[in-house]
């Protein structure tokens, strides 16, 4: 069990993460079942157990730069196995929001870029335009022909048409407005 020390760092960081995520990290037993089952934990990516230890110890910079929450695909395995029911992907969201607000550059730029492009598409059209998002990602990462052979095979089989990349430009103004309002509320601070 983690013992609070009353240090300023706890009030500045730990409590923020707990409040925003709604997850009581103080209950964490550091048992490691989460990292044991985490599909993205590796030599380079610590996994949830260490990430929680960093948050509990007030290591703000380490936690906000820890690649674990960028890699997290919210598979829910850690939460399924956690003896105290910590929902890690909500912790990931809290860390992502705090990192953005603190101006901390994303530690995983590729993942961040893809997620930004994905949301841009949703913000504009209300739906993600998969082909256009993939094309934009490959152009920006200077690898425009990546997986092109696979795309050609799928096109030949009629899985999708190259024309789809050119069609479907209708905007969804309602969804754009939801994005704007959500941003305004988020920037106004959390309770």
């Amino acid at each position: 069990m983690f013992r609070l020390t009353g240090a300023l760092s706890e009030q500045e960081f730990l409590h923020h993460v707990v409040q925003r995520s709604g997850q009581n990290l103080l209950e964490c037993l550091q048992c490691g079942k989460c990292t044991g089952g985490c599909p993205i934990a590796s030599e380079k990516v610590s996994g949830p157990r260490r990430l929680i230890a960093e948050i509990l110890s007030g290591m703000r910079n380490e936690a906000l730069k820890n690649p674990t929450w960028w890699y997290c695909v919210s598979c829910g395995t850690c939460m399924t196995r956690c003896p105290v029911d910590i929902n890690m992907y909500q912790v990931a969201t809290a860390l992502c929001e705090l990192a953005q607000e603190g101006g901390i550059a994303p530690s995983e730029r590729d993942i961040h870029l893809f997620e930004e492009l994905f949301l841009k598409s949703v913000e504009k059209y209300g739906r993600v335009k998969e082909l256009r998002t993939v094309a934009a990602y490959n152009v920006i990462t200077k690898n425009p022909l990546k997986d092109m052979d696979k795309a050609v095979t799928l096109m030949r089989k009629g899985a999708f048409s190259p024309l789809e990349i050119l069609s479907g430009w209708a905007k969804d103004r309602k969804v754009s407005r939801i994005f704007a309002l959500a941003r305004r509320t988020s920037e106004g601070g959390h309770e």
């Binding site: 929450w69 919210s74 990931a92 953005q100 997620e115 994905f118 949301l119 739906r127 969804d172």
Partner: peptide, 14 residues
């Protein structure tokens, strides 16, 4: 509309 998938879930809970 799109559910926002994992990008929205990670970047902005609201």
């Amino acid at each position: 509309a799109c559910c926002g998938s994992s990008p929205a879930l990670k970047m902005n809970r609201l």
